[in-house]
Design a protein around this nucleic acid. Structure first.
Lengths: 152, 152
DNA sequence: ATTTCATGTAATAACCTAAGTTACATGAAA
DNA sequence: TTTCATGTAACTTAGGTTATTACATGAAAT
């Protein structure tokens, strides 16, 4: 089954917006994500409605972050995306009266529910600021490695 | 995103086979799952290869369970299905050199991996025998309720 | 004012995958 | 030798997501 990469994609885009400072057009973001500008607008529309980003029309327009990086978590982004399904598996509900189905659903449902719960809790624990710091650490390390190269 | 219900479906079928005792035809199982016999064969083929069920051709043929219910877990069934993806979300791997992507993937990848791990552990903890017992308890309760009705 | 640039959104097309179906081969039992 | 059942390849259908097109709205530059 194909996986939904919107969360991953939107985090990428948000981090880029945070770095840029100036508003980014849908075209620019779409090029970065190798997708269509309209897709970007559709996705960011949800974040805008939640007050995480803002969009401006006309010259110098585009998208920019307006949320507090320290306070905004992956969970907030996830919710703004419309709570997309987390688990690829589900259970049948065709025959609600069937005792076999009831037993199966009870067993699987518990497992699925707690996995979902765990994921959401983790999402709540990661902020955009942390993500940004991770990125800068990666950049520092890479630059350090490059400097080493140049000294040779 | 649409959820994969093969695990749920196959558990349903297995429990039915356990109850029946006699071999069940693909047609019968397909009717039960409201699907096509060929789909049933495709799915059960994987379980047969793992030695969980056996199939017989000709008159009186069909599918029957040949595994130890006490020892066979949801995990075994899951593996026999070909380890279908558990999580509906994934992370992009388009730009392996991109530090933004690396940071995003590190954060999401951890969360996803541990949720997957948790689910698999739970699967390992549930046997077909337990599922069967749950089913019988449900049946006993239902019969008790029906008896109460009849006494009135 | 008018042109340019950018988003907003509806409608449609293209695409991809999982499921369903058909067709026929294999083999066992009646 | 007929019937029943699985085994499997090939093909079709269904569905849902993503991409694209088209046009409206509105802001800024000229």
């Amino acid at each position: 089954m194909k996986r939904d990469s919107r969360l991953s994609g939107v985090l990428h885009v948000l981090l880029h917006m945070a770095e840029a400072g100036t508003p980014q057009t849908s075209d620019a973001l779409a090029a970065m994500m190798q997708t269509n500008p309209v897709v970007i607008r559709r996705i960011l529309a949800g974040l805008r409605d939640q007050g995480l980003v803002r969009s401006e029309k006309g010259h110098g327009g585009g998208w920019r972050l307006v949320c507090d990086l320290e306070k905004t978590t992956f969970y907030d982004i996830y919710m703004a995306l419309g709570e997309p399904v987390l688990l690829a598996m589900g259970h049948r509900t065709d025959m609600p009266g069937c005792l076999v189905e009831q037993a199966v659903n009870a067993a699987l449902g518990d497992a699925f529910a707690s996995a979902e719960q765990q994921l959401l809790e983790r999402f709540k624990g990661v902020t955009l600021a942390q993500l940004s710091r991770d990125f800068h650490h990666g950049m520092r390390d890479r630059n350090a490695a490059a400097d080493q190269e140049n000294l040779k």
